[in-house]
Design a protein around this nucleic acid. Structure first.
Lengths: 225, 225
DNA sequence: TAAATTTGTAAAATAAATGTAAAAAAACCC
DNA sequence: GGGTTTTTTTACATTTATTTTACAAATTTA
C-alpha cells in the first residue's frame, strides 16, 4: 500500500482527498501544517507528498526547501496543490523542487492521474523507493518484485513482501504493530489482532537463516537488528 | 549535453522551441511526424521527448503507446504539448504514459521549468532495438509478426501478441494488471475487469509447454519466470 | 518466584485472488 | 448483412493468502 501525505490546512479538502485516495487504494495521512507534516514523515514511509502552499506557520515553499535539502526525504516526490495559479507561481514551485503543480480547484480524477504518473516513474528513481534494497544477506529487488536470501530466490506473499520492504527501507527503525497495521494494512484503528505477529512469523521462517535479523522488541514492535 | 526530441508538425513552433532550448543548453532535434521521431530515437540517445498530439499520419497517442511498450525507449520521459486542453485529454495523456502535459499556448519559461523538473528526477536510458526476441523456447519475430514455440509457429491474436512482446521485452519484470491495461489496452482507469486474466490464460494455452513461463504473482501481476 | 502479560507457532477458518470455460458483445471481413 | 474471429464478461472451480484461534514459550511485573 502506498502512503500519501497530504499537507493542507483546509480540513474539508483534505477529507475529500483522503476519501478518494482510499478508494483508489492509497493510504492517506493528513497534516494541517508543515510541522505536523514533518512529524508524519518521520513516522511513515511516504511515497508522495501533496503540498498546499498557503499554510499557517511554516509556509509550503519553506517546507519544500527543507524536504529538498534533506538527505532522508529529498527523493520523495512532491505535488503542489494551490490556489495560486499564476504562471510565475507554477514555475517557481517547479524550480524549487516540486515534481508537479496542480492548481485549485482540481478534479479527483486529475489528482489521481498525476499521482499515478509520478509513482510510475518512481520505480526508476533512486533513494527511498530504491530498486534494490540490501541488508546483510537479504536482497529485495522491487522492480522485479523478487527477494533473495544468500543469493537464493525465495517466494513471499504480498503482505510478507510489503513487511520486508518496509523493514529494509528503514533498517534502524522499530515499528509498532499499530504502525505496521497502518502502513501496510491501511487499518486505522488500533484493534487488537495477532495478524502482524502471524505475518512476521511466516516471513521469518521464509527468510531462513536471516530470519532472526527481524527482532521483536517486547511491548514495542518489530524491526531489523 | 541533454538531447531533446521535438515531435511537432508546426515548423514555427518547433523552431521557437529549438531556439530556446539551445539557449538553455540543450541540444534539440526536430521531427515533423511520429515516424521521423522514431527514426531520430534510433539515431540519438534522447533524454526527453516533447510530443504534439495532432500529427499527420501516426497520431501522437499511438506514438506514445509505442514508446511505452518499447523495451529501449520506455524510460524516456514524454511531455505532451497540445492544443487539446480539456481535462479529459490531459488525464488520458497522463494515463497513457506521458510524464507531463503542457497545454498550448505555453511560455518558454514554463516549458523549461517542466523539462528541468523531469530531468532532475534522473537519467534516461538508451539502447538498441531487437527485432527478434527469444526466451527459453519462445521466439518472437517482430518484423514478420510471427511467434514460434520450440521452432513451431503458433498463431496469436493481436492482444496476445502484444502481451507476449511486452513480457519478452522485459523478461524480469512483473507487470501489474493496471499497467498492462494501460500499456496494451490504453485504458485509463483502474477499472476492475478480468480481461487481462482471460488473455493471459489463452496466451498460456497457446504457448503449450512454455505456457507456465508466464507466472502470476498474486496481488501484483504477471511476468516471465 | 509466581502471576500476568506478551510473543511464538501451527493449524483451522475465512477471505480473496486466480484459473477456466463458455456465453455475450464487439470488431472485422468479405 | 451474415458469418467469422476476436475481445470482453460472466460464473463457478480451484488455488492461494490472510486472519483468527488456541495453546506453548518467553518475558515482564509485582
Amino acid at each position: 500500500m502506498r502512503n500519501v501525505l497530504i499537507i493542507e490546512d483546509d480540513v474539508d479538502i483534505a477529507e475529500l482527498i483522503t476519501y478518494n485516495l482510499q478508494k483508489a487504494g492509497y493510504k492517506a495521512h493528513h497534516a494541517e501544517n508543515a510541522n505536523d507534516g514533518l512529524i508524519i514523515l518521520g513516522e511513515v514511509a511516504c511515497d508522495v507528498i501533496l503540498l498546499d502552499l498557503m499554510l499557517p506557520g511554516l509556509k509550503g515553499m519553506e517546507f519544500l526547501k527543507i524536504i529538498r535539502n534533506s538527505e532522508e526525504y529529498n527523493n520523495i516526490p512532491v505535488i503542489i496543490i494551490s490556489a495560486k495559479t499564476h504562471e510565475q507561481d507554477i514555475i517557481s514551485g517547479l524550480n524549487t523542487g516540486a515534481d508537479d503543480y496542480l492548481p485549485k480547484p482540481f478534479s479527483m480524477e486529475m489528482l489521481l492521474a498525476k499521482i499515478n504518473t509520478i509513482l510510475r516513474r518512481g520505480a526508476s528513481w533512486t533513494g527511498r523507493a530504491a530498486n534494490v534494497l540490501e541488508y546483510q544477506g537479504i536482497k529485495l529487488d522491487d522492480a522485479n518484485h523478487k527477494v533473495y536470501v544468500q543469493g537464493q530466490e525465495i517466494k513471499l506473499t504480498h503482505k510478507e513482501y510489503e513487511l520486508l520492504r518496509l523493514f529494509l527501507s528503514n533498517p534502524d527503525t522499530i515499528f509498532s504493530r499499530d504502525r505496521l497495521l497502518n502502513s501496510i494494512w491501511g487499518y486505522d484503528s488500533q484493534s487488537y489482532t495477532r495478524t502482524v505477529d502471524a505475518h512476521v512469523a511466516s516471513l521469518r521462517k521464509k527468510l531462513l537463516s536471516c530470519g532472526d535479523l527481524i527482532v521483536s522488541v517486547p511491548k514495542t514492535g518489530y524491526g531489523l537488528k
